[in-house]
Design a protein around this nucleic acid. Structure first.
Lengths: 261, 261
DNA sequence: CGCTTAATTGAGAGCCTTCAATCATCGTGG
DNA sequence: CCACGATGATTGAAGGCTCTCAATTAAGCG
């Protein structure tokens, strides 16, 4: 049964737990599974915070600033845990970019159980700050960077998440539209398109169809993104997945690794 | 001794712990106290994530995007816990806005200990998501809002933090400069000044000297900030302090409460 | 193959920034 | 207590970057 395997993905890949253990059983009682098709909204209760585990697929978390302004706050892929606030200043929606399976939890009860177990607590204390730091990086981009810098940063961040390295280049198969990209980095679709053209004209990327982009020169993209040169000393690389890992503008750019642990 | 009282503030107000308890003792061994004067940088080791408890005073956490671009990611006041990332895409600095006392911890070890105690785990699972959600609200403002909206949102957020209600108006005694405000909401000091003038001309605020601002019409400011009208149903108000509570653009605007628990 | 939707491209407008000068504030020293 | 100087804030004018509006082109699907 799909729900069963989804739940096992959750306990094991997210927390390294056996599904049958105590908190595993407690979590299972809280979990609401959902299978979404491309474009579908996750059913959320706006009255309280929620935690959503994305088992398979890809999603966007969007805040609605007004009728016609939305800010995509993070993209998520399989293995991510999303923290979704209750309706506050803005209302948030989680939308599937492709067919997606997920598990929803009410945050309060989830944390109540999680706090009783050292391993889950510790795992959350890894993921939550990481999500926060990614959100900060995004805020820096939105607050300080030009259109070109944001787009280059976005592409580099995506290369970390969904990039496939083929020889010297990284191939991206983006599940999101230009509008989604624009809503994520605070630009209009036209500006996204123009800056994409600029990067293409510069020879840094190549495009193919609507969703395939090849990154031809990562170092040039790093410069375009306005990132300082790589730090001289080797900072420890934590390869693990994270809450909201994909906060759009974020790229560590180590030697391109295969990825996911 | 100052350090002793600072530490008690930490254990008690942040976590509701007695200083002598097991984790209390463990935390104490990790803690590095510091007393900063206005303008001084907190001594931070950029090689690993840190957690800083602001016991007294006010600080700004800034990311340095380049030589002359910095984004203030959050302001903090007494009782706040700040999560500071190791150097990644950007380097971060924590600066005292006024004379400030704080306690620094290496994040990893702190979390290792915290995870072993249910109450501290649970407290962090309140604070961390809250900080994340505030950062998201900030990202929305930076990505989608106009200068006027951002400034109005900033003032409303500050009213929640340092506002003193006097009859119908809220008085702000801002500890940060115009530059800090601009760096926080992604504008230049000139634009901040101009929009402040616009709000003054509209009669929504009044200014006095460099740092005192009176909010004369909260509802008008809410409109100026581009916030939707208050939600119809009463969502539960959690009055507790939070990690990075002051993520600049954020305002819940309940009945103006005296504040701090 | 044709249609619908998404993406690209162009021209003009608007908002914020940049550059520059003036003014105000506040701390300091007389 | 006041005058002064330094720093911060305000105000003005010009320019640039991104948005808006519009038209065209391309992509993907039936």
């Amino acid at each position: 049964m799909a729900n069963e395997s989804t739940f096992q993905l959750f306990t094991r890949s997210a927390f390294g737990l056996e599904p049958g253990c105590r908190v595993g059983v407690q979590f299972k009682a809280l979990a609401t599974p959902a299978a979404l098709t491309r474009g579908e909204l996750a059913p959320l209760d706006q009255h309280f915070d929620q935690l959503v585990f994305v088992a398979r697929g890809a999603t966007k978390l969007a805040a609605h600033a007004s009728e016609d302004r939305e800010q995509i706050v993070a993209f998520h892929f399989g293995g991510d845990i999303v923290s979704i606030p209750a309706e506050g200043l803005y209302s948030y929606t989680l939308t599937a970019l492709v067919d997606t399976e997920l598990l929803s939890f009410p945050a309060r009860e989830f944390f109540d159980f999680a706090a009783t177990e050292v391993s889950t607590s510790r795992a959350l204390m890894d993921r939550l700050p990481r999500a926060l730091h990614r959100c900060r990086d995004k805020a820096v981009a939105l607050g300080q960077k030009s259109a070109l810098e944001r787009l280059a940063g976005f592409l580099l961040a995506m290369s970390e998440r969904v990039g496939v390295t083929e020889g010297n280049v990284v191939i991206l198969e983006l599940p999101m539209s230009r509008r989604d990209i624009g809503d994520s980095i605070g630009l209009t679709i036209e500006t996204v398109s123009r800056q994409l053209g600029a990067l293409r004209d510069a020879g840094f990327i190549a495009t193919q169809g609507r969703s395939r982009i090849a990154l031809l020169d990562l170092e040039a993209l790093r410069k375009s993104a306005g990132f300082a040169p790589l730090p001289t000393d080797i900072s420890p690389q934590l390869g693990k997945f994270d809450l909201d890992q994909c906060d759009a503008v974020q790229a560590r750019l180590p030697e391109p690794e295969t990825g996911r642990i």
